[in-house]
C-alpha cells in the first residue's frame, strides 16, 4: 500500500544521470518526497520539518559514490539521520538504585501498560534474576486488577493483594511498603489509562510519582499512533518526567513514525518494543529496524552499506 521511499526518490533523482555532488536543488526536490513519506509513516509534522532540515544540511554537496544512484544516496543519508535521531544504542531499563527499585508505568487508555508490566516483570525475573512485585493502581477499569493478577500467575511473579476501595495513592504506598518488607528488588506500578486532558487523573499520577519516587517512569504508547504522539509524549513528560518509552504493537504493520516523534519531542530513549499479546512479546529497541520500517525499506540501505 505504501511505496518505499527509495522507489519514490528513484523517480525524481535517478533521472539525473550526471554524477558528482548532490546540489541544493536535487536535495530540495528529494526532501519534498521525504516529507511526504514521513507523514504517511505517521511522523508528526513538526518533527518532519526539523528532520528534513537536518538531512538537507547533511546531503548537499555529498559526492554520489559510483555504485549507487543519487536516489539511493539520499535514502542512505535519510536512514542514517533517522537512526541517529532514534538513538543509536540500546538503552536498557536501569535498576541502579537502592532496592526496592520502583518502576512507574503510565500512558493513555488501552496502550498496553498492564500487559507490558507483566512482560517486564517476567524479563527481570528470568533474565535479571530479580525479585519483582507488581501492583495495579487501576481503580477504574473493570477487572483491571484481576487482569494483572492473572498475568502475575502466568509469569510467576507476585502481585500486591487486591484491597477493594483503596485509592491509587493508597495502593502505591501499600505497594512500596510491601516491597520493602518483602525484600523485593523491583516494584512495578501499573496505573490506569488516562487522557492527558483529564486534569484530575494527571494530578493523581503526579501524586503517585511524588510519593513513590520511581527510578524509571515508562510511557507505554501504541506504535500505531498518529500525529497525536507528540501531544501525548509531551504531556506525560512535562507532568511526570518520563525516563523512557515502550512502544507496543510493533508486531502490527504500521510504519511506526510515532517512535521518531516521541523520541524527538521528549529526548527520552525508546527502551523496549512490545511485539505481541503473549508474555514473551518484548524486545529491545533496535533503531536500525525501526528506521527501515518508517522508510518502508531496508534493502537499499544494505546495498549502500556494502558499496
Amino acid at each position: 500500500m505504501f511505496d518505499s521511499l527509495s522507489d519514490r526518490l528513484g523517480g525524481i533523482l535517478d533521472k539525473l544521470k550526471r554524477r558528482g555532488a548532490l546540489t541544493e536543488a536535487d536535495v530540495g526536490e528529494a526532501m519534498r518526497e521525504v516529507r511526504r513519506a514521513l507523514i504517511e509513516a505517521d511522523v508528526a509534522l513538526d518533527v518532519v520539518r526539523s528532520f528534513t532540515d537536518k538531512v538537507r544540511q547533511r546531503a548537499v554537496g555529498v559526492e554520489v559514490i559510483k555504485s549507487v544512484t543519487p536516489g539511493q544516496m539520499v535514502v542512505k543519508i535519510v536512514h542514517d539521520v533517522l537512526v541517529e535521531t532514534l538513538g543509536s544504542d540500546a538503552d536498557p531499563i536501569d535498576l541502579n538504585a537502592p532496592a526496592p527499585v520502583p518502576i512507574l508505568m503510565v500512558g493513555l487508555q488501552g496502550s498496553g501498560k498492564t500487559t507490558t508490566t507483566a512482560k517486564i516483570a517476567k524479563r527481570l525475573t528470568e533474565r535479571g534474576n530479580r525479585r519483582v512485585l507488581m501492583a495495579s493502581l487501576d481503580t477504574r477499569r473493570p477487572a483491571a486488577m484481576e487482569q494483572l493478577a492473572t498475568l502475575g500467575t502466568q509469569v510467576e511473579v507476585n502481585t500486591l493483594p487486591i484491597v477493594p476501595g483503596q485509592s491509587a495513592v493508597q495502593i502505591a504506598k501499600r505497594a512500596m511498603d510491601a516491597a520493602r518488607f518483602g525484600n523485593y528488588d523491583v516494584v512495578i506500578l501499573d496505573t490506569a489509562g488516562r487522557v492527558t486532558l483529564d486534569e484530575a487523573l494527571m494530578a493523581e499520577v503526579a501524586e503517585v510519582k511524588a510519593i513513590t519516587n520511581p527510578h524509571e517512569v515508562l510511557l507505554v504508547a501504541d506504535s500505531l499512533t498518529g500525529q497525536d504522539a507528540v501531544n501525548t509524549a509531551k504531556a506525560f513528560d512535562s507532568r511526570v518526567s518520563i525516563t523512557g518509552i515502550v512502544l507496543t504493537r510493533a508486531d502490527g504493520d504500521g510504519r511506526g513514525g510515532a517512535a521518531l516523534s516521541m523520541r524527538a519531542v521528549t529526548g527520552k530513549p525508546i527502551k523496549l518494543l512490545g511485539t505481541g499479546e503473549k508474555m514473551d512479546g518484548l524486545e529491545d529497541f533496535d533503531p536500525q529496524r525501526v528506521a527501515g520500517r518508517i522508510l518502508g525499506m531496508g534493502d537499499v540501505v544494505a546495498l549502500v552499506e556494502k558499496a
Binding site: 504517511e40 500505531l224 499512533t225 500525529q227 497525536d228 504493520d253 510515532a258
Partner: peptide, 10 residues
C-alpha cells in the same frame, strides 16, 4: 481508536 494514524486505513 482516535489516536490511530494512517494504519487505520489498512
Amino acid at each position: 481508536d482516535a489516536t490511530v494514524g494512517q494504519n487505520a486505513l489498512n
